[in-house]
Simulated scan of single mutants.
Amino acid sequence: MKKDLTESTISRQNILNNQYALEKVELNLALGGTTWKDERIFTKTQVSSLLSVDERTIDRYIEQNNDELSSNGYKVIKGKELKKLKENFGNDMNVATKTTILGVFSFRAVLNISMLITESEKAKIIRSKILDIAIDAVAQKAGGQTKYINQRDEGYLPASYQEYSYRKEFTDALKHYLDMSDRYKYGIYTNKIYEMIFLENASEYKKILNLAEKEKVRDTMYSEVLKAIASFEHGLAQEMKTKSEELGRKLSQSELDSIIKNAASNPYMKPSIDDARVKMASRDLCFRDALHNKLEGYIQSVPQSDFDKFLGETSKSLEERLSDPETLDVLKRLKDR
């Protein structure tokens, strides 16, 4: 997975979607621009001067990356809006009075094109500063480290408790309905579930996230991943019970393996499994700088809503969650259901 900002759309968008990092970047870089309708804007002439490239280079990058730049704030203005802009800032922005159409960059779009242009030494410097600030911003918001950033989601504790309940249901089913030594069955079939949902066993997962031997894998999982595991465990427990009673005996390993394989290909499970893979692969690369090679095809840019979820006002550490009466009420309702 390429992480060079000039080559990776996902890496660029992960930074541009992080409004907490962008606030710090804007403060630190002080690129200038003109305030128009509550945002900083820059003309093509200003951007070419800022990056020390000619305007034809800017035009070429706009043409080659129009969709990406437009989604991040580049736009063309004309008519009444342009007339008003020229009346207020025409001289300051060096916009000729006869101009009938004008391309303008938002601050975010300026960062975007700085991540794209390879001919500019100034753009390279900006990219380096952006990366440093973005990494520091995430670490600072996450309380110094990101290994347990998943626990800052307000949905984590309910999902974790729910998964714990279904985990008990599944281990009870293994105990009562699988003809296999208790010494091995729990670890083996936990790994089989992991491999079906996110294509990795526990050891592979720990290595990717650099977890210590005693650190628990599930403590680092996102709520959506825990929900997918819980659904899988619940379904398997019910299937094992039904099949065992039907046969009048405990299941063999091959029979349980067949049930697991069928469950993994069940179209009802596919949306939650795909969602778990996308969330794990995308968020871990963005927040933890951890690449799940087997899930590389599922990596997407992380939406702004995820930055709000893990770094925003509603995000809290696990310690804060456990002292929150509302969260404790939710857990109590789950326990009493």
Rank of each mutant, 00 (worst) to 15 (best):
L295I: 10
I58P: 00
K147F: 07
K185Y: 01
I15C: 07
R12F: 02
T314G: 08
M115H: 04
K3Q: 13
G248C: 01
L29C: 12
E169P: 01
L256S: 01
N66Y: 14
T34Q: 13
K75W: 05
G248Q: 02
I135Y: 09
I125Y: 11
T43D: 00
V110C: 07
L236P: 00
F170L: 04
A142H: 03
V25T: 05
N65R: 11
S203T: 13
E7V: 10
R167L: 13
K192T: 06
A281V: 06
I259E: 06
K2A: 10
T314V: 11
K129N: 15
R218G: 13
T242S: 07
R152S: 08
Y268D: 15
D336W: 13
L247Q: 04
S52R: 13
K129L: 12
E23L: 12
G103H: 06
T6A: 09
L27T: 12
K168S: 12
D92R: 11
T35V: 14
T171K: 07
H234Q: 11
D172Q: 10
S120C: 08
V25S: 03
F232D: 02
R288M: 09
Q13W: 04
S70D: 09
N18K: 05
E154W: 09
I208Y: 05
K185D: 00
L291S: 07
A264T: 11
S160A: 15
T171N: 10
D289S: 13
S282G: 08
T99R: 10
K250V: 05
F232S: 00
D4S: 11
I101S: 14
A281L: 06
N201F: 04
M1E: 08
Q19V: 13
S48K: 06
M1W: 09
L5V: 05
S254W: 03
F287S: 01
L199Y: 12
W36M: 02
S265P: 04
D274Q: 15
T57W: 05
L251T: 00
L5T: 04
S301I: 06
K44D: 09
E23D: 14
A134W: 08
I259L: 15
T314W: 06
A96M: 08
T57D: 07
A142S: 14
E87K: 13
D67G: 06
L157E: 10
L251Q: 00
L51G: 00
D329G: 11
A96W: 02
S231F: 06
S272D: 12
A264G: 11
V104I: 15
M180F: 01
E121C: 05
G312N: 03
E26R: 09
S231A: 14
I126E: 03
D274M: 14
E326V: 14
M196Q: 12
K332R: 14
K80C: 03
V47K: 00
L5M: 07
K80T: 09
A228K: 07
P267D: 11
L102H: 04
N66L: 13
T45Q: 10
D308F: 08
V225C: 12
K227R: 12
L82M: 07
V104K: 00
D172F: 03
L311V: 08
V330G: 00
I15N: 02
L211N: 01
N293H: 12
T57P: 03
Y189E: 01
M93V: 03
A134N: 15
A123G: 09
Q162D: 14
Y268P: 01
K270P: 04
A237W: 01
R152N: 12
K175H: 10
G73L: 01
I126T: 05
L31I: 11
L211D: 05
I113S: 06
S301Y: 12
